[in-house]
Design a protein around this nucleic acid. Sequence first.
DNA 1: CGGTTACATGAAACCGGTTACAGCGAGATG
DNA 2: CATCTCGCTGTAACCGGTTTCATGTAACCG
Lengths: 339, 339
Amino acid sequence: MATIRELARLCGVSPATVSRAFNNPEVVNAKTREQVLRTARQIGYLPNESARTLATKKSFMVGLVWDTDHRRPGWRHPFFQEILIGLKTALSGRGYHLLMLATSGEGTDDAHVRAVRRHNLDGVVMIDSGTWDPSLRRLAESGVPCVSLDRPVQGPRTTYVTSDNVGGARLAVRHLHERGRRAIATITGPAHTRPGAERLQGYQDELTRLGLPYRPEFVVEGDFYLSGGHAAMRRLLEADERPDAVFVAGDEMAVGALRAIGEAGLKVPEDIALVGFDDIEVAALVPPGLTTVAQDMAGFGTAAAEAVVSMIDGADAPPPRILPTTLVVRGSSTTSPEL
Amino acid sequence: MATIRELARLCGVSPATVSRAFNNPEVVNAKTREQVLRTARQIGYLPNESARTLATKKSFMVGLVWDTDHRRPGWRHPFFQEILIGLKTALSGRGYHLLMLATSGEGTDDAHVRAVRRHNLDGVVMIDSGTWDPSLRRLAESGVPCVSLDRPVQGPRTTYVTSDNVGGARLAVRHLHERGRRAIATITGPAHTRPGAERLQGYQDELTRLGLPYRPEFVVEGDFYLSGGHAAMRRLLEADERPDAVFVAGDEMAVGALRAIGEAGLKVPEDIALVGFDDIEVAALVPPGLTTVAQDMAGFGTAAAEAVVSMIDGADAPPPRILPTTLVVRGSSTTSPEL
DNA sequence: CGGTTACATGAAACCGGTTACAGCGAGATG
DNA sequence: CATCTCGCTGTAACCGGTTTCATGTAACCG
């Protein structure tokens, strides 16, 4: 394994000059520089990152805290995969690697902080599966640049990225209204979750704007899962007045709702129109195609990468990024189902 | 940031003794050891991994080569997420971190080999999205312990993990036969892909074992996507004799097939029974529930972690692991559809 | 022509660990 | 009592880079 001293010897210069030829090319004589780079290529010299990190305290690695505890559902969401890819791609493009940190549960609580210090991580991204345990707080307070996804935390070196849940919900309701629906119900996520609360908020906001009445009996809480959506839809169908449209705050619940409607002998979208949220793979596959609010999943990764890198470069924590959501229209809200 | 020399000074011993107290506890006097560990805890001493890696040439990091080139479909498969989680969990459990390497496309070809050398990676896992480019070959030949997923490569320090595709296909066909189906067709994956070829092989094998004739007109090639499954199913329906069951080599294609059958005014499973492959999320969600062959996705990660760690520990490359597949029975192959 | 300046380079310390080797005291042995 | 072991610890070199500071040289100026 070629070292910098060896390369220096071959070129008849000192290690310092070789180092400069790579990191500070402009301060070294053009001829020398060329020779160093050429020789380096010839002998296949590669700087040792551990040595470099040791000397500079910069590792060009960003940690990913992703609690994949299997007892805690949520991490399975297709969502995460897209975010992960986006994040990795965006970070690579900026010269950073992504180090997946061991999950909590292992050992004591602040394993994250320890990992960051041990490995000289330059920053951290947290994909949040719902809990905000103290170890994450300590991490955010430890001073490393920190970006959280979907969790509104802020600090001198901490910011977050999230989707415009309120706006997305409003899009959905507006769309149903435009299609002539007036009795618009909603199946929400759990009230204590942030997306759940925000999507309900958007539903209410848009109802108000449209001058439609807010009816408590048209709001049923689900759990983001298929079974919860199924149960919630049944409750809606048992009510005195049947809604002619439902905004479902998650696609999986929407599939459950779809099934409940079918079991009741009703048809989507003729009897009841449906709009979901998330645009997961199933949405396109389940007949008649689920109209849904899509999040910019790749955008999450990019935005997170940008934020963390800018803080690493010394900037203050940038303001939170709220990513726009878009409506994807499919068969469940239109009269002519497509393939 | 506390260093080892500082800690040594506080304890009135030499840095060497402190180092030993951590890495070779049995050679240092019990009293001294206790004191060192206690003081370390008090002042929050953490060894610097870069320095340690520099000295020992062991990083306790495993690289993940995962080609997430967006032009190349396949990486989106839910499959990967489960594998990734399994891998990460299994590696953490063994004290290794997972470093996601920048994808190819960036810079010249052997970015991977370079990354491995620069970062002193102890091993590499390759999640393969279909291509086997020369850079991966060079990586495998470079001497680092290497485990490939779903790609049969072997060498002194290289092995692989894959699913029993043949056996899974046989399970599917046998199941259809047990349900009384005799005219069993298949929609295959692309012939040039390994899973595609193996699943077709299994189909043929089991047909032979059951004494059923092999009919070329009952074999149609798909592309692993919904549209390909849809088109393939239509071709099967146009044939002279209609099959009463189809083994579809991928769940997405199966959903396409399901749709084509519906459009033809036929019913699943009454007219045609269907068995898919992969057990992706949709399989459970799409009515009437897709019977399918499940792969042990978490097992992939665990097996890969075991293999790479054993090689890191000095063992020869273990033999390839072929993970068993299991049949998940749902409505598409039974007469009474479940919820 | 002496003195300043800019440029290019080298010597050496340093980052924070590990480890080969040597040394030392205490108890065991001849 | 001299010597040998054994258990424990310290010294110092080393891993492979970076960076401060000093130095030498050539160009520039009055």
